[in-house]
Design a protein around this nucleic acid. Sequence first.
RNA 1: GCGGAUAUGGCGAAAUUGGUAGACGUGCCAGAUUUAGGAUCUGGUGCCGCAAGGCGUGUGGGUUCGAGUCCCUCUAUCCGCACCA
Length: 962
Amino acid sequence: MRRFPGISAYFRQLSTNSNWKPMPGYSPQQIEKKWQAHWKDHRTFRADNASEKPKYYVLDMFPYPSGAGLHVGHPLGYIASDIVSRYKRLRGFNVLHPMGFDSFGLPAEQYAIQTGQHPALTTEQNIGTYIRQLSSLGFSYDWSREVRTSDPAYYKWTQWIFLKLFNSWYNLDTNKAEPLKTLLAKFAENGSDGIRAAGDEEEHHSFTNGQWKLFSEKQRLQAVHPYRLAYQQDTYVNWCPGLGTVLSNDEVKDGLSERGGFPVERRLMPQWNLRITAYADRLLQGLDTLDWPDAVKEMQRNWIGKSIGAEVEFRIQNPAEESAEDQQPTTNTQQPTIKVYTTRVDTIYGATFLVLAPEHELVAELTTPEQKEHIQDYIDATKRRSERDRMADTKTVSGAFTGSFGINPLSGEPVQIWIADYVLAGYGTGAVMAVPSGDQRDYVFAQHFGLPIIAVTDAQQIEEQADPTKEGRYINSELINGLTYKEATHKLIQHLEANGIGKGKTNFRIRDAIFGRQRYWGEPIPIYYKDGVAYGVAEADLPLVLPEIDEYKPTETGEPPLGRAKDWKYKGLYDYELSTMPGWAGSSWYYLRYMDPHNAERFVGEEAERYWQNVDLYLGGAEHATGHLLYSRFWHLFLKDLGLVTANEPFQKLINQGMILGRSNFVYRINGTNTFVTLGKKDQHETTALHVDVNIVENDVVDLEAFKKWREEYANAEFILEDNGTYVCGVEVEKMSKSKYNVVSPDVLIERYGADALRLYEMFLGPLEQYKPWNTNGMSGVAGFLKKLWRLYHPQDGDFAVTDEAAAPAELKALHKAIRKVEEDIEKFSFNTTVSALMITVNELTALDCHKRAVLEPLVVLLSPYAPHLAEELWVELGHAAGSISQAAYPGFREEYLVEDTVNYPVAINGKVRETLQFPATATAADIEAAVRASDFLVRFADGKEARKFIVVPGRMVNVVV
RNA sequence: GCGGAUAUGGCGAAAUUGGUAGACGUGCCAGAUUUAGGAUCUGGUGCCGCAAGGCGUGUGGGUUCGAGUCCCUCUAUCCGCACCA
């Protein structure tokens, strides 16, 4: 075989051969289709549920299949997870890497309302598009495990878990969820006495075991209901009239629905809830065990919002007492007290008034006749203000005096009782003791309404604003004067508890999760009503299949769409619950179903669950921080309590991939004309910037012919060009969206450069977790890298020509540098530097003109997670079986190849580099010091001064301190 | 207001974790080859300067022989929460 040096082969062929063909080269389009088909036909990436190998579970947050398909931003995380999967397979792990679809959701239903097309149909089509696009990227998913949340075989188990929640209660003594039968046993034995359960204590009625025995079935169920972990209750909800459904807090942004942007209002409605509050503390504790981004953990901590403080009861002063001057608080009277919650009980002597939420139940009772009209006006005004206004307006001070007084339980002083909307009904007790000296809101309120402000520590500076400091010693505080914060808090809580006027108390901000949507396209809640009481559908009757209806709107009477289902009754007798589950129901446990997706007997087989346990690496967007990621943890903890899962947490390591932003291009139309002026000259005219489709722009230069064809109105457009005759666009980075014409489709890029190039480029773009702009220009760089790589294996005429010669030291060094770097970086999930390392290696090997198997075979293995199609192709050309590269041995690096013969040492005086000296790599620090001392280096630069010390950094540099 | 992040060439970025800042890629400049090139190859490219040299990692300070990296200050941008007592 004759060899020509590289490129000239083409031209020789051209000139000597009249019927020349294009130079054969790397053609990803053929290679990629071939290998994708092979992987699919041979089920190359099927994972076994039993193996000698250690398991590794890599999961992407599964997508909602939207109609628009994927743009280049979507696959970013999928590419990273696929690289990890393939890498871990090479490192000897049994890898579970599945994909599925979160296929219930609002867009398909909105589309159905508009067009009458069944959401199942739309969803099915969209999933088809997604699978085609995902497959064309060459992901190593085990497609046999695909799940879809809208599949009855899947949501059967979503409903099953709901019923488990419905049939469980949370025992605070054992600190875990238990089946209701343990509760029923307690009722039968001691009645409701001594039961400590999660939930609203006021809803838990008290009865004796004797009464329990006499209860009817209905009475029993009613008594049990408030203990259930899935329960129905009148709840203030975010009602969205535009969508005709309630939304969870994380589906509401700035008072508008996240989907659709419709206004949202507060409304009291009967709702199904999940008692996530029972798990608040455990959800908080568990965060410490997780390898998650700090931002997400912190968001969850804030969302849970644990605060440690105290509840204090303020007695209400009788009108009669006012004159009687009865200084001895009589605790035996049954008169109502006002319970407040505070995290700063130490400041109680500074509590100079009380503020209740306008919705507080005692407001009516406390309002004196003189104040009645005033208070009613205030309450009405509050109601009129939407939630949104209330949030936006935190500056205005407003409130109203009830006319009544309470008594500060420690100072004994009477304090005015006010209402104000800065106090929230839903948090704590809906009432606060106002300490103007220590809390800025109270301070502003006190100033505005002329209420007293009393300093409580000697360190407080309160002339202009409240001072919440915990420094200093207490003053004006009889019982705790002279004490520090810690001592005072401790002493006060003891005092309160001893006198029955308060107690230490921990509060959480997190609310129970509302679990019903008045919508069609979701899992039916498996509940039916008999005699006005909710019953769970029997397990044997699951799944409760979503019935067909004629229209996807609410009924004329305002019932949810399921009210339209004909003859839809349990056992033909009982009405079903008409709301469906929220979007997050199916996604709260899908990671478990992947472990054993076809199991018809159980939500996940016991053995499969014990083997896979939980997700080792979870990739997805940060937008799910307080929604999906919290709900999943809650469900997992619950399943753990029932002994149904093994691991403590569902997702051990989490990475949030950053968004890829669009790079929008602009053209500048001179106002009132059809003339467009290039960026460089636009300042000479009055112009309007218009988005131009990035697909007809190359390196920010518009293809003017394509531009004229792009839109009819531009067909006769005229242009003022740069002096070099091109039209240059303006650039801005924005979110990718159709309306900005900056969407880049992966399909087009795969067509042109291949999936391998796209995968590499997305990783090369920058750190995975960062937001970064897309720029198609860069694609040619990685495409060039792949061509260069291909040419290492096909140095002439495009023929495969790898030799069996022994590798030279320089070649081995290039290879092993890459092996080490690639391995180090992928363990840190640093994909961009990994790709760079591969590029450098190929550049080096090209420069060395290396075509040797000893180097190129390990290189293919190294490459295979990143550019799997090309790697498979080369692997087979190297003589291996098709599809076997995923079982190849991962090359280990050998230190000895990396050792340098000589090392260049920059020699610096006082940190300033003066000269570079060369030493053998084996030289020790002492050798180098001696050599520098012996050289004329010091003589030349020391200016008569002596070297004070030598700093030799092995392999790096020498610094002489003078 | 509270919390989390980020800041390095025209652009995306790298820096063995305290040791010659700007690797790799793009873009740009020059050259080779080609009828042509959105092809391929070679060289150059942080800024100022003809050069010697000087200056350079958001700002200002500090520690150190030596700081993109550690400490303090301030600023800007992004994200999340927001009257949570």
